[in-house]
C-alpha cells in the first residue's frame, strides 16, 4: 500500500517587495516585473507534509503548479526538497484566471496524472490571500476538503483525524482518503534542500501540460472562463486630514502628543 500525494504550489512575489508592486492603469493588471519571486510560504509546509507522509507510508509525491514558464523555478525547488515528480500547467489560455478558473485546470491536470489519494495545498497565498482554490479544486475533483489544518493524526493508511484551527479554538474532523487538505504553518517545520537533493533534482523531469493536454472543460479557463472580473481600479479617498508633524524629534513628539490629547485619543 502506498499513497499518491499531489501538492499544489504557487510562485508568488516576495512579500518584502509588495510595496514595489503597482497596477497598470490601462490594462488594470498587476505589474510585477523585477519583483523577486518565491514559493508561497504556506506551500512549503504543504510540500513538507507530503514528504513526511510519503516517508511514513511510502508512495509518490507530485508537485503541481500553474503559471508562466518561469514558474518552473518553484518546481525545481520542490524537486530539490525530495519531491518525485512535477507538473507545470502552462498556457497563455490560462492567463488572467480568477480562483475558479485556476481550480479547473488544476483539477483537469491532476486527473490527467492518474490516481490520487491526497491533495495538499497551502491554506492561502500571500498575494491573492483568498484561500479559495483548495476547496474549489476539491469540489471539482469530487472529494471532501478540510482547510486551516494544523495537525494530522493517522488512524491507519486510509483514515485520519485532522485538527483545523478556528479563530479561537479548533475543530477535530474525521475523514477517509481521498481528501484535499489546506495546511497552515503550525503543521510542521519545512526542511531545507540538501546538496544531494539539488543534484538529484537536475535529473528529474518537469512535465509541461497545456490546455489541450489536460482536456479541461470548455469556457472554464483564463480570463474568459473567470466568473469575476476587475471592473475598475481607483484611488482610496480618505476623509482624514493627514496632518503632518515634522521637525526636531523632541519638539515634534510634544506637538503630536498635544494633538492626541486635543482629539481625546489619550
Amino acid at each position: 500500500m502506498s499513497l499518491d500525494i499531489v501538492v499544489c504550489i504557487k510562485q508568488v512575489p516576495d512579500p518584502e517587495y509588495f510595496s514595489k508592486i503597482t497596477i497598470d492603469p490601462v490594462k488594470q493588471t498587476i505589474r510585477r516585473e523585477g519583483i523577486p519571486t518565491i514559493i508561497n510560504p504556506l506551500d512549503k509546509h504543504a510540500l513538507e507534509e507530503g514528504l513526511k507522509i510519503k516517508e511514513k507510508f511510502s508512495g509518490k509525491v507530485t508537485a503541481v503548479t500553474m503559471g508562466p514558464p518561469s514558474a518552473r523555478e518553484v518546481l525545481e525547488e520542490a524537486l530539490a526538497l525530495g519531491i518525485d515528480d512535477s507538473v507545470l500547467l502552462c498556457d497563455r489560455a490560462f492567463a488572467g484566471a480568477d480562483t475558479l478558473a485556476t481550480a479547473y485546470p488544476l483539477a483537469s491536470g491532476i486527473k490527467k496524472l492518474g490516481n490520487f489519494d491526497l491533495i495538499l495545498c497551502g491554506n492561502e497565498t500571500v498575494d491573492g490571500a483568498t484561500g479559495q482554490v483548495g476547496p474549489q479544486l476539491a469540489e471539482l475533483l469530487g472529494i471532501p476538503h478540510v482547510t486551516f489544518v494544523n495537525e494530522i493524526e493517522w488512524t491507519n493508511e486510509r483514515d485520519l483525524i485532522v485538527k483545523s484551527t478556528l479563530e479561537r479554538g479548533y475543530m477535530k474532523l474525521q475523514v477517509t482518503l481521498p481528501v484535499l487538505l489546506s495546511v497552515v504553518k503550525e503543521i510542521n517545520e519545512p526542511r531545507l534542500p540538501t546538496v544531494l537533493g539539488i543534484m538529484e533534482a537536475t535529473e528529474k523531469e518537469i512535465k509541461f501540460f497545456n490546455a489541450k493536454d489536460i482536456d479541461v472543460p470548455e469556457g472554464t479557463i483564463g480570463l474568459a472562463g473567470s466568473p469575476t472580473r476587475v471592473a475598475d481600479v481607483f484611488e482610496h479617498k480618505s476623509k482624514r486630514k493627514g496632518e503632518i508633524i515634522e521637525g526636531l524629534p523632541e519638539d515634534a513628539v510634544k506637538r503630536a502628543v498635544k494633538r492626541l490629547r486635543e482629539l481625546k485619543a489619550i
Partner: peptide, 21 residues
Amino acid sequence: TNIGMDLAPRVASKVETGLTA
C-alpha cells in the same frame, strides 16, 4: 470566519459562480 472561508469557495464551485474574498 475560518468556517465561512471553508464553506464559501466550496459552494461557489458547486454552483459555478464567482466569489470575491
